[in-house]
Design a binder for these strands. Sequence first.
DNA 1: CGCATATTTAACCAAATGGTTGACCAAACC
DNA 2: GGTTTGGTCAACCATTTGGTTAAATATGCG
Lengths: 123, 123
Amino acid sequence: MVDQTLTLWFSEDMSNDLDTVFAALADPTRRAILAMLLEDDMAVTDVAEPFEMSLAAISKHLGILTKAGLISQEKRGRVKWCKLEPDALRAASVWMQGFGQFEPVNLDAFERFLEVELPSGED
Amino acid sequence: MVDQTLTLWFSEDMSNDLDTVFAALADPTRRAILAMLLEDDMAVTDVAEPFEMSLAAISKHLGILTKAGLISQEKRGRVKWCKLEPDALRAASVWMQGFGQFEPVNLDAFERFLEVELPSGED
DNA sequence: CGCATATTTAACCAAATGGTTGACCAAACC
DNA sequence: GGTTTGGTCAACCATTTGGTTAAATATGCG
């Protein structure tokens, strides 16, 4: 099962995926958006609200996150809802874990740190 | 203990670190270099050898990896040795794991995939 | 219909990225 | 001392990135 995964990992597709996922994660605004979406699905306008940046800029960020597969966007009525897609992180996470055999992280603590992370709390 | 770590995570420093680490990982050449260094420490020239790219370009990539803390470089004689620093990946890995509670990865399988990944095998 | 709301698109801009070549510096060798 | 070897630096170039504003496209509402 893992073997099957391995055959995929260094296809150019996979390398491409890692490119776009890591590039998407390299921007703090986008990481903050992901953290917000961890709490709940959100409309584009609501995602944009805490940032000091135009809606168009946020829309672009969301496009990048979508292309990386990190979120999905579904239009209901005139509102477009953004939803976290944590699976897209798996491949990247696995790639990284290979380098360090990191201990699993304490997720309760992680949730608490998110409260600090959220842009609404940063202002 | 984890709590202590948490207070650091959203300092601007930490966010900055994540920026540079993820940005460094977003390039396939640099990921390939990391994979090579996972096997053994290497001199700059030897790192460059499998790539169809100037030594200067590789030198730049190594600089970026160094700035991200992903490798260290030590000059012995006229040769500069590059060494993987897997710890730098930990923070980023932890950040990512928070989004998916991923299962730990099979590292034996990971080693085998590296044989495929190595640029010397890609040509 | 006519207007407000939600979001994207287009055109533009400055700065960063990933590469090149050629000059340069430092260590080793004959 | 002169030349090769190992590596960086500087200047340059094309492309991408992250942002802007203004116009365009839906959708919903009275």
